[in-house]
Nucleic acid binder design. Sequence first.
DNA 1: TTAATATATAATTATTTGCTTATATATTAG
DNA 2: CTAATATATAAGCAAATAATTATATATTAA
Lengths: 115, 115
Amino acid sequence: MLQSTVTIEQTANFLKLLGDKTRLTIVGMLKQRECCVCELQEVFDISQPSISQHLRKLKDAGLVKEERRGQWIYYSLNPENELYGLIDPILQHVPDLKDKIEIINKSNPTLRCGC
Amino acid sequence: MLQSTVTIEQTANFLKLLGDKTRLTIVGMLKQRECCVCELQEVFDISQPSISQHLRKLKDAGLVKEERRGQWIYYSLNPENELYGLIDPILQHVPDLKDKIEIINKSNPTLRCGC
DNA sequence: TTAATATATAATTATTTGCTTATATATTAG
DNA sequence: CTAATATATAAGCAAATAATTATATATTAA
């Protein structure tokens, strides 16, 4: 694979972006499946605006895409990002996040009634 | 290779550490060869104490070792670090730092006179 | 011993960061 | 339309960060 044309400063900024526990966890979860904000809220002990602000940073860096579907805005990783290829090696060093995905699968916040 | 037993928080801290242009450059240079502070000074536009402080952070995180040899203290990467394996994939996305190594090879600050 | 060099530490400061609460906007349901 | 829900934005604040200058410590050379 060719070396990408990213500057050292861009790479440092990318690492700084992932150098936050919340954002790294979000990215790890999005690697498994897209999530909306209310789903992420199930997993983190911070306020909804705080989650939105982390997502905005990820989006501003082009690492994450958003897509509105009705009431919800779904976030997913953007494989077009020049440094996307770094995500996998990084996540390989991190414990599995399937438990977090389990949590939101079970609580299912986007299904408000079981009728 | 087995997945290492590092927490997501430790990984985030590691990425935050490398998420700084100066420190990422230092690590990239140390990947090529050990350096002392006065050599690194040739390459950066910041004060000597600032460089020492970056090195201390890297050392506190166990990413870097130091070894005094006479007047100089040489810094090198510590391959024992649990996340050492991440350094290569990261540096693959960064332009080569051989030019910086060239600079210190040429200025040769540890050789004060040619006699 | 003294002077020079290499490096570390301390104190200070401006900036950035991550959070909070309050509020605004957009969508859906009734 | 109105109420409820999902999300974003704004304002404010405390803590962390990266730099600076000043000073201390360690080593070498004379």
